[in-house]
Design a protein around this nucleic acid. Structure first.
Lengths: 198, 198, 198, 198
DNA sequence: CATTAATCGAGACGGTACGTCGGGTCTTTAC
DNA sequence: GTAAAGACCCGACGTACCGTCTCGATTAATG
């Protein structure tokens, strides 16, 4: 019968989802306990009981494994349905600030900076942890413009950068805290940027 | 009175400036040729002819050495005396953009993210390559407010972050280029932020 | 019952005999060319192409590696079947003298003195290169006593020491040569020691 | 003739005997506390407060310093005036045995084996700690022969070796203890070696 | 008594080697 | 035929000492 054999008939032992899961769990524990710098494939293999070659079958290097571990549990940027652009932005940025103002926040920044910028995996990571908030912001602003709350901005990309960049900036430069005062200030700034010109 | 015997009179052979210089030069060459990830103390020692222990006498680890090498030749943020706040900001940001839109730019971001955030050395590095531009901006804005060109802003810290953060953000997230269009757009955005409220 | 499942069936890749062999060969070459003092693990790794960690998996330190290299090719003290105790002893001591009167002889003495005296490896080395001749002598003397050629000596341990110790002594003290005249003189001395009391 | 101005009139500050003394004392303490393997010039300099270059002015390397430290306090082989050759030999060997049956004994053997055999310093060390006993034995035997107690032996060098070598041999091979039973047994053996032939 | 010269301590220098960690690959046995 | 276990080669780590070399500070004999 020829309707089948499209699938090349996987022979032998199938890849174990358990191994992947255990390695990932061990990676997360190590991130908590030791930090990103100590997250070696070796250490994950030892802690998880998963063999090193198996880990390499799932991730190309320690950086990818770290990125995947860091993504797990990171807040997805769903639209925080709040009335009014400023309030909506503020709520979203506040969530983001809380997520970044942790050890994990620094680790995300470090992973981002360290990772091969060309890799597909890195691209996915950036989209997930950095750019998704920016896209959510774009939706909010689009809706507000649609509703006539604000004018359609010309330089939307730069506006989005100005709103969302300060988080990463403060995280890396450390000159100012990532605290609760930041979200309302950024939301207010956003409104000024988007205000109709006089 | 404190005019005397503050220095404890250094005994023994003084550290050789030549060794420091040679190691630093080799580090810079390696950064160019191989990238930050390949900058090992071992490689610097081999290339420079300086002994490994000597290198460790000057820098605590490869990260510090890399930061010092990356700082050399980085543009100092002197006041770009241009008439008008917007033009001055634009000129400064353009300089900064050119400095970051290179391999060295990524390396700086990577070094910043990787370095021990508590270290004194890291603090100096952050001040030099990230925050000095921010401080220059603060001066420009202060002068413009003094001159009555703009109102004295309330949230100056957040304003500064919104102006200078996008550079690092684009560098790390890679969603938009670090090109010549960025500086005028950011300068224009800054002006909107600083415009007197209606 | 001890007939079965004593071996726990080793899993994983077995140690490569080739690596062990190559390291040992390089060690021997270095002993010849440079001397015991220059036999570093580093040098063996470089010359043999075997990784340092692999060498450490096989030998605890440079001293053990040196001892094993020195043992290879050292003459085993088989019974030199010659008629007459004196002739047999003389033949055996002559062989031994030739073996020690070389660069390797000094290296053996040095290794012996330097090695951790408690280590199991050291014990094996001592048995192989120093004490095996002594035991061969014990057999010769026992046979001669059996045959009535000599009386059964009381202080056999001290007698054996007096016969075999001078080799090492001359090697280390260097006051007299390790030459062909030594073997007959020691054999004659042994006979006097073993002669029936008057 | 030139009986004067042989000394080139040492100008400047003369070498300080105190520095030499302090370094030697520190070396001995380190030998006791840490062992010969840990006796580094560095450690001696730190412990004694004497500068490294000063130490190198007095000894060519760590080995020489160790040898000098090991010589201090080692029993000089004066003639142990006891009536009868056997008793005299036994007394002398017993003293020697006690001196070698210590940690210092092993260290002496190790230093002897490790040291450059050609160096003048090594020669002096060997004479002092190894060969002086042998020479004392030669004197005792000569006197006994003179007194008619024994015959003048032909192979006096080999006889001396057979008497004194077992100490070093047991020390290095470790197959038999260096205990009080050894001295009388060796003295008795010596007598058999020296007995007039039948 | 000032000069002068060698030694002193301290400590940095270029090196070699240490013993360990981790990387990524490869080879075995077990499931 | 994949999984685990684990050895392989390799590169780098950070440290200990090596023996040499400046340094500023002492210390005697010389002038």
């Amino acid at each position: 019968m020829s309707q089948a054999h499209e699938k090349p008939k996987p022979r032998g032992r199938p890849p174990s989802p358990a191994a992947r899961r255990k390695a990932l769990a061990a990676a997360q524990e190590l991130l908590m306990a030791e930090g990103l710098g100590r997250l070696s494939i070796e250490a994950v293999a030892n802690r998880s009981g998963v063999g090193k070659p198996t880990i390499y079958r799932h991730w190309a290097n320690a950086s990818e494994l770290a990125m995947e571990a860091l993504m797990v549990g990171f807040p997805a940027m769903g639209s925080t349905a709040r009335p009014g652009l400023e309030a909506a932005l503020e709520a979203q940025i506040a969530t983001l600030t809380r997520a970044f103002a942790t050890t994990r926040g620094r680790q995300i920044a470090m992973a981002l900076a360290t990772a091969d910028p060309e890799s597909e995996f890195t691209r996915a990571f950036r989209n997930r942890v950095i750019l998704s908030s920016r896209e959510a912001g774009r939706v909010l602003i689009g809706a507000a413009a649609e509703a006539g709350e604000i004018a359609q901005p010309q330089d939307i990309e730069v506006v989005l950068d100005m709103i969302y960049a300060p988080l990463l900036y403060r995280l890396l430069a450390g000159h100012q805290p990532l605290d609760e005062a930041l979200a309302p200030a950024l939301a207010a700034g956003a409104l000024r940027l988007l205000a109709p010109s006089r």
